[in-house]
Design a binder for these strands. Structure first.
Lengths: 135, 135
DNA sequence: CCGGATCCTGGTCGATACTG
DNA sequence: CAGTATCGACCAGGATCCGG
């Protein structure tokens, strides 16, 4: 393959955009880059070992619909980010919990959230400035 | 005012999903969580001080259409992540370059990319396993 | 030859109603 | 309580044409 362009650029972390190499990135973005996945993971990370029920999650993630919560939960479960525990009771009870994998994904997510906390004001200013000088 | 953000974002433990507190997160996800923004930033980060032309970017980001490249570039420019340099020449030339803000966003993005590098196989396995035990 | 604007379709998301 | 089913609105995004 082409490792030449990885080292040729001389950056500390050489990055390319060829589709073969960014396929995992694209795929992951398609998953967790959607409207709700990250918020779901964050909601489940409140406490270590935290387990939440469906309705609990729906209450804590502002504005999510039942349908989207179901879909997002399934996605994340399929990707091994969370586990689903069904209790054969009446009324039915289902609890969701982050797996170690999902928990580890929260690390980079926290980095991102941190960045936002630091730079959000700058982005807002940039937008205002851009909108002003653009007719 | 960002003084009041106590543990809203970036706190080590307490994370919530109330819409007021996650508004920046939701907003940023809406921006860079789309199909192309991160790939664009990555493409522009090949070298420090790297400047790329439109067609150059289109070539390096596999599969992006002109329209989407234009849109994505505008978004990122508006958010202050990159700057646009127009040269009054024939044929016309426009160059794009990351701003310090855009450059700093690459830090968390790299963290994410690293995570993918480490955990992608596990996700793939989880999917296979999930698909097998699901009718 | 570059880069931007226009038209149109397909997928995604939300609202609502219903079931185990 | 925890989902599933169906429908419709909306917008991302691809093809295509346009301006310089």
């Amino acid at each position: 393959m082409k490792k030449s362009n990885k080292n040729a650029v001389g950056g500390p972390t050489a990055l390319t955009c060829r589709s073969e190499e960014t396929e995992p990135l694209r795929d992951l973005l398609a998953k967790i880059g959607d409207k709700w996945s990250i918020l779901l993971l964050v909601a489940l990370s409140r406490k270590p070992g935290y387990r939440a029920r469906f309705s609990e999650l729906q209450r804590s993630i502002d504005g999510i619909s039942q349908r989207m919560l179901t879909t997002t939960l399934r996605q994340a479960e399929r990707d091994g980010l969370l586990s689903r525990h069904v209790f054969a009771e009446v009324p039915p009870r289902v609890e969701y919990e982050l797996t170690p994998l999902g928990l580890s994904l929260l690390e980079p997510i926290r980095t991102l959230i941190h960045w936002i906390g630091h730079n959000w004001d700058m982005i807002k200013e940039a937008r205002i400035s851009f909108d002003r000088r653009t007719p």
